[in-house]
C-alpha cells in the first residue's frame, strides 16, 4: 500500500524537479531526500507507537480542541491542496499524453468519481482495493520499468563524485519532496482499523529507493542531463524511446502511465478519506460520505477554474510550505506528546 501510492507519485514530477535542481551527481539530492524521508517516518511511527489504538486525530483531540485545530488545519490545507494539484496535474498529463481532444473536466471526472467512490467505502476498502490493484498492475508496471532500461548508456552516470550542492538552494528541490511527504501521514490515521509492522513500513520505504533513483536516472542515462532538462516529464519521454519489436503494442508508455494513474487514484481516495475524517471530527453532525461528496465537488470546481499549468505549479509551490510543516511538525509533535504521556503514566 505504502509502496504503490509512492510509486504513483514518483514517476512524473520527481525526476523533473530533481533534474532541474541539480546539473550533475543527482544521486546526492536523492539520497539526502531519502534519508530525510526515512528519519521522519521513523520519528512519526515512534511517536505513534506511544498511542496504541489511536489515530492522530484522537491524539491531538486529547490535548484540547484549540491545539488540535492548530495542528490539524494545516494538514487539511495540505491534503486539500495536494488533492487539487494532483487531480489537475494528472489529468493534464493524460491530456498531454494520450487524450488530446478530451476536455480537462472530462478527464477529471473519472479521477474524482472513482477516488470518491473508493473513499466513501472506507479505509478497509481502500486497502483491499490497493492490494488487488497491486496484484494486477504491479507486474505490468515492473515489466515496463525494466524495459525502460533498453536505451540506457551507463556512461552518463559519470561524473560520480563531482558533487554539486547547488540543489540546496533550488526551489525545485523542495518541490520534489511532494513525492515523499504525501503519503506517510496515513500511517497515523489507520491505527484503530489496522495494525502495521513498523519494520515492514521502513522496509518498503527503503525498497522505494531504486525507484526514486532510477526514475531520475533512466532519463538521464538515455538522454543525458542536458537533454533531459528540456523535458516536462523526463521519465515518460525516456519510456517513449523504448522500442520492442516483439510486443503486440507499440506504445507501452501508455500502459505504464495508466497503471501509475491507477495508483494515483488510490492515493487520491486516501487523501480524500483523511481530509473527510478530520473534518467529520470537527463537525460531527454531518455524515462522512456527504463530506466526501462535498469535498470532491469542491475540488472538481477548483480544478476546472485553474487556468493553466503555471498556476498549478504555483499552487504546488505554496503547498511546499504546508508540506514542510507536515513533514517537520507533525512527526515531532506526535513524538513529544508521546514521550510526555509516557512520563505521566510513570
Amino acid at each position: 500500500m505504502y509502496f504503490i501510492t509512492h510509486v504513483g507519485l514518483i514517476f512524473f514530477m520527481y525526476p523533473t524537479d530533481i533534474i532541474e535542481s541539480a546539473s550533475r551527481t543527482h544521486w546526492v539530492p536523492i539520497f539526502i531526500g531519502m534519508v530525510f524521508h526515512l528519519v521522519f517516518i521513523w520519528i512519526y511511527m515512534k511517536g505513534l507507537s506511544y498511542f496504541p489504538g489511536k489515530n492522530i486525530i484522537d491524539i491531538y483531540m486529547e490535548k484540547g480542541k484549540g491545539l488540535s485545530l492548530i495542528f490539524l488545519i494545516p494538514i487539511i490545507g495540505y491534503f486539500f491542496l495536494a488533492n487539487i494539484t494532483t487531480v489537475r496535474a494528472y489529468s493534464e498529463i493524460i491530456n498531454i499524453v494520450f487524450l488530446s481532444e478530451t476536455p480537462l473536466w472530462a478527464t477529471m471526472i473519472p479521477f474524482l468519481f472513482i477516488a470518491t467512490y473508493i473513499a466513501a467505502k472506507g479505509l478497509n476498502v481502500i486497502f483491499h482495493t490497493a492490494f488487488i490493484v497491486a496484484c494486477v498492475f504491479l507486474p505490468l508496471f515492473l515489466f515496463i520499468f525494466i524495459l525502460s532500461f533498453q536505451n540506457v548508456d551507463w556512461r552518463y552516470f559519470f561524473p560520480l563524485f563531482d558533487i554539486d550542492y547547488s540543489f540546496i538552494s533550488n526551489r525545485s528541490y523542495y518541490k520534489s519532496f511532494f513525492s515523499f511527504a504525501g503519503v506517510f501521514l496515513f500511517l497515523g490515521f489507520i491505527q484503530p482499523y489496522h495494525t502495521y509492522d513498523r519494520k515492514k513500513v521502513l522496509l518498503s520505504a527503503i525498497l522505494l529507493l531504486p525507484f526514486f533513483l532510477f526514475s531520475v536516472y533512466v532519463p538521464i542515462l538515455t538522454f543525458g542531463q542536458a537533454t533531459s532538462a528540456t523535458f516536462q516529464f523526463p521519465f515518460v519521454t525516456a519510456l517513449d524511446s523504448v522500442y520492442i519489436s516483439w510486443l503486440v503494442f507499440d506504445r507501452i508508455t501508455m500502459f505504464f502511465l495508466i497503471s501509475l494513474l491507477i495508483f494515483i487514484m488510490i492515493f487520491l481516495s486516501l487523501l480524500l478519506w483523511m481530509v473527510s475524517s478530520i473534518l467529520v471530527h470537527f463537525v460531527p453532525i454531518v455524515k462522512h460520505s456527504y463530506v466526501l461528496y462535498f469535498l470532491s465537488i469542491l475540488i472538481f470546481i477548483i480544478c476546472v477554474m485553474l487556468p493553466d499549468w503555471k498556476v498549478v505549479e504555483k499552487l504546488f509551490w505554496w503547498n511546499t510550505y504546508f508540506r514542510f510543516y507536515v513533514i517537520l511538525v507533525i512527526p515531532f509533535s506526535v513524538l513529544i506528546f508521546g514521550v510526555r504521556s509516557k512520563r505521566k503514566v510513570r
Binding site: 543525458g224 542536458a226 537533454t227 528540456t230 524511446s241
Partner: peptide
C-alpha cells in the same frame, strides 16, 4: 537513428 536520438544530439555535449 530515431527521433529521440536526433533530439539528444541537438542538446548533448558528447553525442
Amino acid at each position: 537513428t530515431r527521433v529521440w536520438q536526433v533530439y539528444r544530439s541537438v542538446h548533448s555535449y558528447t553525442h
